[in-house]
Design a binder for these strands. Sequence first.
DNA 1: GTCTATATCTAGATAGAC
DNA 2: GTCTATCTAGATATAGAC
Lengths: 214, 214
Amino acid sequence: MAKRNTKELILTTSLELFNQFGEPHVTTNHIADEADISPGNLYYHFRSKDDIVIELFKRFLTRFQPLVEISDQMLLQAEDLWFQLHLSFELKGEFRFLYRNLSDLTARIPDLDRAMRGLLKRERQSAWNSLSGLEKAGVINIDSRQKEMLADSILLALTYWIPFSELFDPNGMEDSSAQTRAIARVLLSVTPHLQDPEKTQFTDLAYQYLSHPA
Amino acid sequence: MAKRNTKELILTTSLELFNQFGEPHVTTNHIADEADISPGNLYYHFRSKDDIVIELFKRFLTRFQPLVEISDQMLLQAEDLWFQLHLSFELKGEFRFLYRNLSDLTARIPDLDRAMRGLLKRERQSAWNSLSGLEKAGVINIDSRQKEMLADSILLALTYWIPFSELFDPNGMEDSSAQTRAIARVLLSVTPHLQDPEKTQFTDLAYQYLSHPA
DNA sequence: GTCTATATCTAGATAGAC
DNA sequence: GTCTATCTAGATATAGAC
């Protein structure tokens, strides 16, 4: 019991510090200090700093996995799409340090690189599936190349909205406006391809949340 | 003359290494070694490693500046837009290390942070101007909120296409296909808002380049 | 499991001769 | 301007007592 507590403590402390200061600027001493344990104790529970990052990533992955298992029949309503994006963005925000230094982390940690690439692949697939669903429902009108490029655009926005938002408002991830704007951007990248009445529905929903963030 | 040569040598060597290995993984010793000079000599020409980064960024900025001075009357033809994007993406590719570790660099180097934020602001403005131009020409049909969100989406793509491309193909910045796809993504995010015949013109151009990269 | 003390290593940066 | 030699700081990680 006590065993688990310290390990958890290290993880939650690390996550907080990584998110706040950026993973490269947080040292193991810093973590130990903040968690009120000794550096030696930290290394009793984790082999290395990278190990902490990997463990945090695993936690993220476990919770994120269900959110990217999207068939082509799940997200046909604007509200469903919004809600799914909301859940996924919320979770990414909780682990935002991962997305702030993505290139660096993947370059440094091969395990993370593999896992992240797999995740991105599945995320792209789920974006593609969502578009397919709208297509089958006769709601969207789009040729296959455009569909692929759109899925890529969505994936890009899904992957980099966090550092992008922080560029303009470094501490802005605390409130939810950055998140809301990011979701709206994704939705509004799809709406131009839609037919009415769905086009208006999706657009209005995006505007509604932009005005009154959930 | 000899003075200038060594300084330039350090800069070009640094740029190459930064682009290849990522700025955080390149040490000053590494640079000196590759440039066949001593570490001490490097520090005769530059106060610090950050100084090298800043100088490289200045060079980038000097060349990039003209490319973001875009009025609302400049880019009305698909070819013009494509060409402008091509020049700008090409240059960013030359200095891609800046865009790979953006969050880190701006967090570490206040001067770079300020300059980069200014640049992004102007880039967003120029995206907005381009859309305004199309609007005045009666080619695009878009309300003002959607226009703002679209400008943001474009800016996001303009800023993160490099690390995004590298996620899928780590050494893929050598050939131009990543760049071509990135430009096509931007163009194709605008086309759904266009009226024919421009809609078809823009779309066809994007597809054409995707099939036969310039 | 936890601590203190310390080893190791590396990177950035400086001093002083030539 | 350039070199060799070296300093310093800070970070990861380990050893060994409790």
